[in-house]
Amino acid sequence: MTLTVCTWNINSVRLREPIVLDLLARETPDVLCLQEIKSPVEKIPTEAFTELGYGHMVARGQKAYNGVAILSRLPLEDVTDHAFCREDHARHVAAKLPGGTEIHNFYVPAGGDVPDPVENPKFAHKLDFLDRMADWGRTAKPQRSILVGDLNIAPREDDVWSHKQLLKIVSHTPIEVERLTATQNAGNWVDVTRQDIPEGLLYSWWSYRARDWDAADKGRRLDHIWATPDLAARSTGQSRVARDVRGWEKPSDHAPVFASFDIDP
């Protein structure tokens, strides 16, 4: 079977329920992973999702901040068993699909404005979170797994609109890129998006501050889909960023990212 996964920082699932429903109706991914849902689990609008065929969900919620959820047309087993956040925020949830494929959905801390862990506790928190992800990867040695989410780092020079101008801006600093690379290597993760789209500028986030985000096009690729080598080898090669969604009514500042895999049922 072909498994299509989508990851999207929605910036409030209740506020943006209409565009989540629109995306599900138009794109029909098998699994939708949402970050920054900004809602307790019991207030996520599951009834409308169920009506569209997404009757399975695992989530970790938090009032007004953070929060992650996995919506699925396929049954899910909640396998969340690891704490990555020293602040006890809702930033990770994991589920197992029929057949054994695991989905890990992350919302890495943004890190504030000052890229110095001594001066900025938020940046220190971000680096600590990445270190914990790396430690988990080394210990768990994941297989048949997909890792998605808003990782809040654009690692490559062509993942940002200007490598030179963003080198000292949080999300593209050398120390963040180094930690993200270490996290990726520790779990032997493959960046499926860049495996499928190896060349060229590619963004998934555009600031609300831009008067015309599309024309200015000062984006960053903050949203990622990784997979263990066994699944990365089964990518259908159809990864993409649904850039047009950034222009929908009352949008998130992030666009959804898609990948598909041929997996055993």
Rank of each mutant, 00 (worst) to 15 (best):
P29N: 01
L15C: 10
S12R: 11
A95H: 01
T46N: 10
N9F: 06
R243K: 13
H82I: 14
F261W: 03
P142L: 08
N11P: 04
E199Q: 11
I146R: 04
A95R: 03
D131E: 14
I19N: 14
P117L: 02
G61I: 08
I169E: 13
L180S: 02
A216P: 03
Q195P: 02
I37C: 08
T46A: 14
K126N: 13
G55R: 13
I37M: 09
K63W: 10
G219P: 00
P229G: 02
D262Y: 10
T46P: 00
I10N: 04
T7S: 15
P229E: 04
V170G: 11
V108P: 02
E36I: 10
R156G: 06
F106C: 02
A259Q: 03
T139C: 10
D196R: 07
S12I: 11
G200P: 03
S145W: 00
E178R: 12
Y54E: 06
A134K: 04
W248V: 12
L201D: 13
V93R: 15
D116S: 12
A140R: 14
L32K: 06
A227R: 09
K63D: 08
E199R: 13
D191W: 03
N152G: 09
L15I: 15
E17A: 14
L15T: 15
P174D: 04
D217E: 09
K43G: 03
K96N: 07
E47L: 11
I70K: 07
N11G: 03
G149M: 01
R91S: 05
T4E: 15
L202K: 10
H56T: 05
V93M: 08
V177D: 07
P155C: 08
K96G: 08
G247Y: 09
E249I: 11
K43F: 11
C33G: 06
A59M: 11
L52A: 02
A233V: 00
H224C: 07
A216K: 14
A227T: 08
T80K: 06
I37T: 15
L127Q: 05
P117A: 05
S235I: 01
A210F: 13
I153Q: 09
I37P: 05
D217S: 11
H125P: 06
D159L: 09
W8Q: 01
S260K: 05
T101A: 12
H104T: 09
A110Q: 14
P18C: 03
A134W: 01
N152M: 03
G200T: 01
L202V: 03
T193D: 02
R243V: 10
V31E: 05
K250Y: 05
T101W: 04
A64C: 09
T2A: 12
A94D: 06
D262M: 12
P174N: 10
A140P: 01
D128N: 13
S39E: 05
H172E: 07
I19C: 13
H163S: 15
G137W: 00
D81C: 11
V41D: 14
P45H: 03
R221L: 14
L151A: 04
V148C: 10
R86N: 14
T46H: 11
R132D: 04
W226N: 10
R26T: 14
A233F: 06
S145F: 08
V58H: 11
H224L: 12
P251Q: 08
I175Q: 14
I103W: 04
T50E: 15
Q62W: 05
T228F: 00
P155M: 02
